[in-house]
């Protein structure tokens, strides 16, 4: 086992009922990385995450997590991994600290080992005052923090989070991010699936974009923006946007797209384009550097995914 490689997957593939949901992907994640897996619904993110924890057996390929061959040695691997599921599965019949305790028991820890850890985790999750509260009395953000704390009960070498902040308000999300950054600083390897670009951009030092079972891009967020998309974006919307657009003579090197009532222009230099906006009082516009969302939409398309 090479301890510096946390995940090593080669030619992983999985199909359900003849439909390939993960197509021959290769993936290597090193110790200390915080890796975001992005993709629209149906991209194969969830299946990939399930394969990583040994819940889904790949049809083809080789997978090692923490040096253990998966799924054969998934039990040993899971004893060193923390998982934050997409859907909360805290025990509603237990209090906050009882949840941590009974989860710790599943790893075989005794009360003596667990008690100091539970105290530490309650501090980490800012839930000291809630130790004896029932789960139903917690807010959505508190439940998520508890789920995150619970995933650390075994002091894992790898943390896997499936859409950890979906459905949270902005304040609660900030607090989770802060906690994840702290863990990252302590050197924990983190894999996080999300469809919030902001989340990926802020937390991850590596982004994997998936769609239709394939890995479309895999790089640092800033490199991804550099390599995949023009540096500047002009967004224009409002009354008369289509008339304004029809008067334009776009230079070569400027790419544009229309999404609903908004038009997007991408290019190295858009100043001349902005000048043409003078006199069009009904238009609203935003001139900004390109971000991960632009990359994501370029790679995966702008069509709505309902499946």
């Amino acid at each position: 086992m090479s301890p510096s490689v946390i995940v090593n997957a080669t030619h992983l593939a999985k199909s359900y009922n003849g439909k390939m949901v993960v197509k021959d992907i290769n993936l290597s994640i090193k110790k200390g990385e915080c890796c975001g897996i992005l993709g629209p619904n149906g991209a194969g993110k969830t299946t990939t995450m399930r394969m990583l924890v040994g819940h889904t057996k790949a049809d083809k390929g080789m997978l090692e997590v923490l040096g253990f061959s998966i799924p054969d040695r998934a039990r040993e691997m899971r004893s060193k991994v923390g998982v934050v599921p997409q859907i909360d599965n805290l025990d509603p019949d237990f209090s906050v600290s009882e949840n941590l305790y009974s989860y710790g028991r599943y790893f075989g820890y005794s009360r003596k080992v667990l008690e100091p850890r539970i105290q530490k985790l309650l501090d980490f999750a800012s839930l000291q005052d809630k130790a004896d509260s029932r789960i139903q009395s917690l807010s959505g953000g508190m439940k998520r923090r508890l789920t995150l704390a619970r995933s650390l009960i075994n002091e894992p070498d790898l943390l896997i989070l499936d859409e950890p902040t979906t459905g949270l308000d902005p304040q609660a999300r900030q607090l989770i991010w802060q906690q994840l950054r702290q863990l990252q600083k302590e050197g924990l390897t983190i894999i996080i699936s999300t469809h919030y670009m902001e989340e990926a951009e802020r937390l991850c030092d590596r982004i994997i974009v998936m769609d239709k079972g394939d890995i479309l891009a895999d790089n640092r967020p800033e490199s991804l923006i550099d390599e995949q998309i023009e540096p500047h974006v002009l967004e224009v919307h409002g009354e008369g946007v289509h008339e304004w657009h029809s008067t334009l003579k776009l230079e070569a090197g400027i790419r544009y797209e229309q999404v609903g009532e908004t038009r997007f222009y991408y290019g190295l230099e858009l100043k001349e384009l902005i000048e043409t906006l003078d006199g069009w009082g009904g238009l609203r516009y935003l001139y900004r550097p390109a971000n991960l969302e632009d990359v994501f939409l370029k790679l995966t398309g702008r069509d709505l995914r309902d499946d």
């Binding site: 025990d91 989860y103 599943y106």
Partner: peptide, 14 residues
């Protein structure tokens, strides 16, 4: 409903 077993399956339990 409670997904208790899913939680257990993320630990060494099978």
């Amino acid at each position: 409903v409670q997904r208790t077993w899913d939680g257990m399956l993320s630990t060494p339990l099978g």
